[in-house]
């Protein structure tokens, strides 16, 4: 009986605590959305407005009427779909290979991959590689150089580690080679993990910014984040006597706060909406662990 009460108490506290975290998260987001619907003049004069007196779609209408924005939206969409699929294939293949304990050179390979997490190759050498591959100014330059990463390989390998070799052998008796096993058994079996990693990749691609600045010259091929960054970044500098900075500050016209917030909402919403569709897969049965004997 005593256990029951403490159990209930825990439940209530837990729910309360999570609600608090939820609210703390939600509030600034709510504020962002409200600002994006506000009339700029009201925003300038208002003090602490949590509910505008007049809602306007003007900012959204303007944003979605600009070609730059629409172009960028489609580039980001392409990256997040095609890029994610390619990344999952490459990462999963490599991680599965590395998770098989019988593999020769497994440890050195793992170590070499780990090193790539710690050492950032220089900006310029990376640029040379992309240039020599003829990828400059192509959307592929935003996908291929970030196809996979040491971090993802190590994590995914962690998931595959728990898949026993015996499973694979059973399938091999049926005449499959490893590629067949991987495709027909491993991938479906690790669906929740795949969905999780897919989401990671999709978000990564959606937020592509720096490589686009480096590799893409044609502004119609820029992804959304470049456009967003351009709207949000303020040229302000505190440095004394920086004449150049002063000129920049004088020359740049800042977009209104409402427009900025609308841009934030438009650039974040599509990728955010992916999550609820994937959420059910995280909770579903048929998990990696359950095949453990």
């Amino acid at each position: 009986m005593k256990k029951k009460i403490s159990d209930h108490l825990f439940e209530v506290c837990n729910i309360g605590f999570l609600a608090l975290i939820g609210l703390a998260t939600l509030f600034p987001i709510y504020y962002t959305v409200v600002l994006s619907f506000m009339d700029p003049t009201e925003y300038y004069q208002g003090k602490l407005t949590l509910f505008p007196s007049k809602w306007t779609m003007e900012a959204y209408r303007y944003l979605l009427s600009t070609r730059t924005f629409i172009d960028a939206l489609s580039v980001s969409g392409f990256l997040a779909t095609v890029g994610t699929l390619l990344s999952l294939t490459v990462t999963s293949g490599l991680s599965y290979m590395l998770s098989r304990k019988r593999l020769r050179f497994r440890r050195p390979l793992m170590f070499l991959i780990l090193l790539t997490i710690l050492f950032q190759p220089g900006l310029i050498p990376s640029y040379f590689v992309v240039r020599e591959l003829g990828l400059l100014d192509s959307v592929w330059s935003l996908i291929i150089p970030s196809l996979t990463g040491g971090w993802y390989v190590l994590l995914m390998k962690g998931f595959y580690d728990s898949i026993p070799d015996s499973l694979e052998e059973a399938a091999r008796i049926d005449g499959c080679n490893e590629i067949g096993v991987w495709f027909k058994i491993i991938l479906p079996l690790s669906l929740p993990a795949m969905v999780a990693f897919g989401l990671f990749y999709a978000v990564g691609y959606w937020n592509t910014f720096f490589s686009a600045v480096m590799y893409i010259n044609d502004h119609t091929k820029w992804p959304l984040q470049v456009i967003l960054r351009n709207m949000l970044t303020d040229p302000t500098s505190a440095m004394s006597g920086n004449g150049l900075q002063q000129l920049r500050e004088g020359a740049k016209k800042m977009p209104s706060e409402t427009l900025k917030m609308a841009a934030v909402v438009v650039t974040t919403l599509p990728i955010m909406l992916v999550y609820p569709f994937l959420q059910k897969h995280f909770a579903k049965g048929a998990m990696v662990g359950s095949v453990k004997e």
Partner: peptide, 27 residues
């Protein structure tokens, strides 16, 4: 014996060589 396994990991290995290890020489 594991040739198919290596084929599976090959794209990833090429990736690391091309985009990580070659640029490392720039250090």
């Amino acid at each position: 014996r594991d040739k198919y396994l290596y084929v599976l990991g090959l794209p990833g290995i090429i990736y690391f060589l091309l985009f990580k290890y070659i640029p490392f020489s720039g250090l």
